[in-house]
């Protein structure tokens, strides 16, 4: 095991992952995330950003190296996985709300079945979260009756219902129309100001500049560069990040 600092809530130590036998998707990832830190991950398509954050709640498993989340090492141990999934919330690009349940039921499902919380309490907490994302009046509707931006805010509220210590976002705004992107980002900025640890895959530079403590740039399964947003966007160090930035700024 590695020397680990109590202040690091997530520690990647020489993590390697392959898809199948030949595709080396994560290469020697070393990364320490401090408690309360807000990190933005960016990089070209296929560079392994999604894979990296999906390892944190074990939607993907790594094959080599150590990955420690809030003091618990992620292995095949089911108990450890259960514990970590309770502490890590995740928001997906495609929302992934449960279409057969109402908005409120989407939010109470996990607190009731996983958190063993009484229904009434779960509903009260859920309403609180819905207010936080400014969508309380939609509680009785079904997800597909809502707009994309509203759905994504419900998904954020659902992830918050387990009071996670870490929130993972995988391109939360890239399936949205421009006018909806702002309403989702506003909610995320508010969350960021409340001290939760956040790791967010996104190409929204405005968001990165506003809230990120650190920007991580990935390419071909490696962390190529990491820096403060200001330094990274104004003064990229590597050719690959320069190239990438010129592309996303270009349009």
């Amino acid at each position: 095991m590695t020397t680990q600092n109590q202040d690091n809530i997530i520690v990647f130590d020489k993590v390697n992952k392959w898809y199948g036998n030949s595709f080396h998707v994560l290469r020697d990832i070393n990364l320490n995330v401090r408690r309360g830190e807000r990190i933005v991950v960016c990089g070209p398509s296929g560079s392994g950003k999604s894979t990296l954050i999906r390892c944190i709640n074990r939607l993907e498993e790594h094959q080599e190296g150590h990955l420690i989340v809030d003091g618990t090492e992620l292995t095949d141990d089911v108990k450890a996985i259960d514990k970590i999934r309770k502490e890590v919330g995740m928001v997906f690009q495609q929302f992934n709300l449960f279409p057969h349940l109402t908005v409120l039921e989407n939010l109470t499902l996990s607190p009731m079945y996983v958190g063993k919380m009484p229904k009434k309490e779960a509903e009260e907490k859920a309403m609180l979260q819905l207010k936080r994302v400014r969508i309380a009046e939609q509680a009785g509707k079904y997800p597909l009756q809502l707009s994309g931006g509203q759905q994504q805010r419900v998904a954020i509220a659902r992830a918050l219902c387990l009071t996670p210590k870490i929130m993972l976002f995988d391109e939360p705004t890239s399936a949205l129309d421009p006018e909806m992107i702002k309403e989702v980002l506003d909610v995320m900025v508010e969350m960021a100001n409340q001290g939760i640890t956040m790791i967010c895959v996104t190409h929204e530079m405005g968001f990165a500049k506003a809230v990120a403590d650190r920007v991580i740039f990935m390419d071909q399964g490696q962390i190529v560069e990491q820096n403060t947003p200001h330094e990274f966007f104004n003064n990229p160090q590597t050719d690959r990040s320069k190239d990438f930035l010129s592309k996303i700024l270009g349009h």
């Binding site: 939607l59 919330g89 495609q94 449960f98």
Partner: peptide, 18 residues
């Protein structure tokens, strides 16, 4: 059922049976 449904359920900590 879309694969994302299963992933969302897992991310929320539901057991396989749930």
């Amino acid at each position: 059922v879309a694969r994302g449904q299963s992933e969302a359920a897992q991310a929320l900590g539901l057991s396989k049976g749930q």
